[in-house]
């Protein structure tokens, strides 16, 4: 049973019918990356545990991390991390009252996308060694 009205007033939040502004994409991306990072933390903790167990395990982790699919996996974790971090910093800046206007919000969202894109490119270069 879905509720399409509350207290007799219609509810229309069907996002498919709404043209979303860049700030909305910035916001939902922050949320999605936060959820991806929850999974990342579990995997990273496993790697950390193993890497600290013994010299042989440490070497094995290094070997696993340098194999292509795992490198891609690490990239899939680091990319969301940069985005979530930069968008999170924007949150903190906006909490201090900076960039809260409509234009400020749009500009901030653009800056977040650009800065995290740059960091993501650097991460790729670091992982695959240019």
């Amino acid at each position: 049973m879905k509720i399409s009205s509350v207290n007799g007033r219609p509810v229309n939040l069907d996002l498919n019918t709404i043209d979303l502004p860049i700030t909305a994409y910035a916001s939902i991306t922050h949320r999605i990356t936060g959820l991806v990072l929850c999974a990342a933390v579990l995997v990273l903790l496993w790697f950390l545990d193993k890497s600290l167990t013994s010299e042989a395990d440490f070497t094995e982790v290094q070997k696993i991390l340098s194999s292509m699919p795992i490198k891609a996996l690490m990239f899939l974790f680091l990319a969301p991390f940069w985005y979530h971090l930069i968008a999170g910093i924007r949150h903190l800046i906006m909490d201090m009252g900076v960039g809260e206007s409509l234009e400020g919000g749009r500009l901030g969202a653009k800056i977040v996308f650009i800065v995290s894109a740059v960091l993501i490119v650097f991460t790729g270069v670091w992982l695959w060694g240019a």
Binding site: L85, G88, I89, H91, L92, D95
Partner: peptide
């Protein structure tokens, strides 16, 4: 949420 964000970062 804010304090933890800074520490994790």
């Amino acid at each position: 949420q804010r304090i933890s964000a800074v520490v994790i970062a």
